[in-house]
Computed example of a mutant assay.
Amino acid sequence: MYVAVAALSVPEANKQAYIEAAEFMADWSIAHGALEVMEAWEANVPEGKNTDLRKAVAAPEGEKIVTGWVIWPDKETLDKAKESMGKGEGFEDYPEGDPPFDGSRLIFGEFEPLLTRGR
């Protein structure tokens, strides 16, 4: 198992556009070998004294924090998917218009699980 994680902020007014883009990316990821995709919209993101999620993504007033992950069977499957993404393969039907968030403030990382429980 290999996990790709993202954190970003989205203008509240762009929530529906973000959902549409996230649905496209979830379907694209599953079609390229992902096992699970999860996206979550801010419900309670407290302000921290030194750091917090809002500071991490430099979210201005009026933006909500979004976080999520994609679980891949292994790093190789994700690497193949990233290669396809880089070539634009399968993006012909991506929602039109500007992205619903500022991609320059997106935080992305890849992780090897240390512990899993539950599902």
Rank of each mutant, 00 (worst) to 15 (best):
N50H: 08
A58H: 12
V66W: 03
L53Q: 13
E89L: 15
V66L: 05
M85R: 10
R117F: 15
F111G: 04
Y2S: 06
L78N: 12
G90W: 07
A7T: 12
A59M: 01
K80G: 03
W69F: 02
A56L: 15
H32S: 11
F111Q: 07
E23I: 03
P60I: 05
V3R: 14
Q16S: 13
Y2N: 12
A31D: 12
G62H: 13
A43V: 11
E110P: 01
L8E: 02
G97P: 05
A40K: 05
V37G: 14
A58V: 03
P113E: 10
E23M: 08
K80N: 08
G68R: 00
E89V: 14
D98R: 10
G62R: 08
L114G: 05
A34F: 00
G97R: 06
I65T: 05
D74T: 00
F24L: 07
V66G: 06
E63W: 10
K64T: 09
I71V: 12
W69D: 00
R105M: 05
I71Q: 14
K64E: 12
D93S: 13
M38D: 13
E63M: 07
V5T: 14
A43G: 11
F108R: 11
A22Y: 02
S104I: 04
P11F: 09
M85L: 11
K64P: 04
S9T: 04
D74A: 07
R105E: 02
E23F: 09
F91P: 03
F91K: 05
I107P: 01
A34V: 00
E39H: 07
D52V: 03
G103F: 06
Y94P: 00
G33F: 04
E96C: 04
F111H: 11
E20K: 11
I30T: 09
E42W: 04
A58L: 11
I19Y: 14
E12V: 11
Y18E: 05
L106Q: 03
G90C: 10
G88A: 04
D74W: 08
G109A: 15
A21C: 10
G48F: 00
P60E: 07
E12M: 13
P46V: 03
V70E: 05
W72Y: 07
V57E: 08
R105H: 09
G48Q: 02
H32P: 01
E61A: 15
S29R: 13
S104G: 06
M25D: 04
A34K: 02
G90L: 09
E61M: 14
F24Q: 11
D27H: 12
K55E: 13
Y18K: 03
